[in-house]
Amino acid sequence: MSLSFTGSNRRARNVLITVLAIVLLIIGSYFLFRTPRLTNLAQSSVVQLAPLKTAWANGDVIVVIRHAERCDLSSAPCLNAPDGITKRGKDTAVKLGEHYQKLGLDQADIFVSPLTRTRQTANFMFNRDVEAQKWLAGCKGIMLKTSLETKRPGHNLILVTHSDCIREIEKHLNVHAPEKPPYASSLFIVLGHDDKKPRALGFFYARDFNSDWMNQK
Rank of each mutant, 00 (worst) to 15 (best):
F111I: 10
G59E: 01
T86N: 08
N127R: 05
Q216V: 06
S147R: 03
H155P: 00
P77A: 10
V46I: 13
K217Y: 06
V175R: 07
L20T: 10
A68M: 13
Y100D: 03
R70S: 14
R119T: 11
A122N: 06
I158R: 00
H176K: 12
D109H: 04
K134N: 15
H67L: 04
W56A: 02
F204M: 08
F204P: 08
L173M: 10
T146S: 13
F5H: 07
L24K: 07
L73A: 12
T54G: 02
S75N: 14
K87I: 09
E149M: 10
S211E: 03
C165D: 07
K95E: 13
F126W: 01
A108H: 02
L25Y: 08
Y100K: 04
K151V: 03
V15L: 11
E98L: 08
S113V: 08
R119L: 05
I166W: 04
G141D: 14
A21R: 00
K134L: 14
F5V: 10
V47G: 05
R152I: 00
R13K: 04
E131S: 14
L144I: 07
R199S: 15
P181A: 04
P182S: 05
T146C: 02
V130E: 04
Y183M: 09
F5N: 12
S45T: 05
L32D: 11
T35M: 13
R70W: 06
V23I: 13
A108L: 02
Y205L: 11
R117E: 10
S185G: 08
K95M: 10
V190S: 05
T118S: 11
A200I: 09
P153S: 02
T146K: 15
T116M: 12
A184W: 03
P178L: 14
V63M: 15
M214P: 01
S29Y: 12
Y100L: 12
N9D: 00
I62V: 13
A55K: 01
L38K: 11
Y183R: 09
I22K: 09
T6C: 11
L73P: 04
V190H: 04
A122P: 04
S185R: 10
V160P: 06
N80M: 10
A93S: 05
I22C: 15
N80S: 15
T146M: 09
N215K: 09
Q107C: 03
Q133R: 15
S163Q: 07
P181L: 04
L157V: 02
F188T: 04
R119H: 08
K180G: 07
